[in-house]
Structure formats: C-alpha cells, structure tokens
Amino acid sequence: MIAITSIDGTIEGGLDERFGRAKKIILYDSEKQNINVIDNKLNMSASQGAGIQTAQNIIDAGVKVVISGHLGPNAFRVLNAAGIEAFAASNITVKEAIEAYRNGKLIKLTGSDVEGHW
C-alpha cells in the first residue's frame, strides 16, 4: 500500500508538498486498486511533532511506501525505523504521483530534505 499526501483527498487533486501538515493522506492499495482517505486535520493543528504523528498514523495503516513533497528529519526517522520507503514529488496531482512511482520516475529519499520545525 502507498500513502500520498493530498490537498483535497481526491486522486485528481494536488499532492500536498507538506508531510506533517498535509490536509489528507490518500492510501492507495496497488493490488486491489482502491483508495482510502485519512483525514490529517488533527495533525495540521498539532503544536509540535505533526510529522512524527503523521508518520505514526501511516505506519498504523500498514503502508510500505510514502510519496510527499518534503520530509523533515523527525518524520523521516520514524518512517525509516518502520522500514517505510519515502519518495519525493512536487507540483503534481496524486494520480500523476502514483503513475510516476510505478514507472520508477520518483526520487527515493535517503534522508530528510527539509529542516524540522515544531
């Protein structure tokens, strides 16, 4: 299963480049080809540790791959500890992001690409 951060919870809508404070998370099951949406509203207003909490939610959902814009060091550490791979995309819809991932066109993140903030 793949998790993609999303602005509006639809696959035609844009990918949310923020991870911890993304509005919605789309869970795409590549085998069943269906999607589920997690509302990330609670984390959007978390005063700190939003990335950590979002990462934990994704882990609890049983995801193996994450696609987002930028990952902070804290979120990356949590995903990494759980063995989840993270890929970066920008200026793209969720659907395009899934396509690009399948075609191996996304860059795998090997570390955080933004500084954490709280």
Binding site: Q48, G49, Q53, A55, V78, A82
Partner: peptide
C-alpha cells in the same frame, strides 16, 4: 503530549 517519544514494533525513538 509533545510527540517526543515514539514506539514502533521493537524500537523506541526519542525526539
């Protein structure tokens, strides 16, 4: 309340 400690399977991460 500060999301400063995370437990994942057999790991505990402290932020």
């Amino acid at each position: 309340r500060f999301n400063a400690i995370v437990t994942i399977k057999d790991k505990v991460l402290v932020f």
